[in-house]
C-alpha cells in the first residue's frame, strides 16, 4: 500500500468525504463495471456499487492494513452484488435455469453433430453472443468469469476477493468456462436454426 493511500484511509476513518472520494477514485470505474457485468443492468449496477462504497466508507475503520485495499474493496463490491442477486433471485433469473439443467446433454449432442471448423466457430462468435452467454451463467460462475476473463484479476486476487482457496478458484473457473462454452454452442445452434 502506498503512503498516500495509507494517509487517505486514516483521514477517511475520521469521516472525511473528500479524502474518501480521492481514495476510491481509482477503483470506481472497475467496481462499477464489475457490478454492471454481474447485475446486467446499469441502474442496479450504479445503486449497488454505490451501496458498496458506502459500506466501505462506514467500515473503513475495521479495514486491516495488512491486506490490499483494492481487493478488500472489490470483495465488498462482489459481496454486495451477490446479496442483491440472492434477494432478487426468484424474480429475475428463473428463466435461465432450464437451459442450465439441460446443458450437459445438449452440448455433447452438438459436439458430435457439428463438423464446423475453427474458423467458422470464430466467425460466428460475436461479442454480443459471448456477452449474452455470460449473462446466462449461474451467479457463482458468472462472477468468476467476470473477475478473471473480463477484469483480469489473478488467481490469488480472486481467491481473496471471493474469500476461498486457490483450489476452489481453479476448479470453479474451469467449470465456469466449460459451461460458458456449452452455452455459447447452444446459442450458436439456435441462431443457425433461426436463420434457416
Amino acid at each position: 500500500m502506498t503512503d498516500t493511500e495509507y494517509r487517505l484511509i486514516k483521514k477517511c476513518s475520521k469521516g472525511n468525504i473528500d479524502a474518501f472520494e480521492q481514495l476510491i477514485e481509482k477503483y470506481e470505474k472497475k467496481a462499477y463495471n464489475i457490478a454492471l457485468r454481474i447485475l446486467k443492468n446499469p441502474d442496479d449496477a450504479m445503486d449497488i456499487s454505490q451501496e458498496a462504497f458506502i459500506k466501505v466508507f462506514k467500515s473503513i475503520k475495521t479495514f486491516k492494513q495488512e491486506s490490499s485495499f483494492s481487493t478488500w474493496l472489490y470483495r465488498i463490491v462482489t459481496n454486495t452484488c451477490m446479496d442483491f442477486l440472492r434477494k432478487n433471485s426468484n424474480k429475475v433469473y428463473s428463466i435461465d435455469s432450464p437451459i442450465q439443467t439441460d446443458e450437459g446433454d445438449f452440448s455433447r449432442e452438438i459436439e458430435d453433430k457439428s463438423n464446423s471448423t475453427e474458423e467458422l466457430f470464430e466467425r460466428k462468435m460475436t461479442k454480443e453472443l459471448v456477452h449474452k452467454s455470460i449473462d446466462k451463467l449461474e451467479h457463482e460462475h458468472r462472477i468468476i468469469v467476470i473477475l478473471r476473463d473480463i477484469e483480469g484479476f489473478s488467481y490469488k486476487e480472486i481467491a481473496k476477493i471471493l474469500n476461498c482457496t486457490l483450489g476452489t478458484v481453479k476448479s470453479r473457473l474451469s467449470r465456469a468456462r466449460d459451461n460458458l462454452r456449452d452455452i455459447i454452442l447452444i446459442e450458436m445452434e439456435q441462431n443457425e436454426h433461426s436463420i434457416v
Binding site: 470505474k29 462499477y32 470464430e122 462468435m125 461479442k127 459471448v130 473480463i150
Partner: peptide, 18 residues
C-alpha cells in the same frame, strides 16, 4: 481452440464509462 477464441473475446470487452 474454441475456449481460446472465447477468451479472446472476453479479454477485449471494453470498460463501460461511469
Amino acid at each position: 481452440e474454441q475456449m481460446i477464441s472465447i477468451l479472446k473475446v472476453t479479454n477485449n470487452f471494453e470498460e463501460k464509462e461511469l
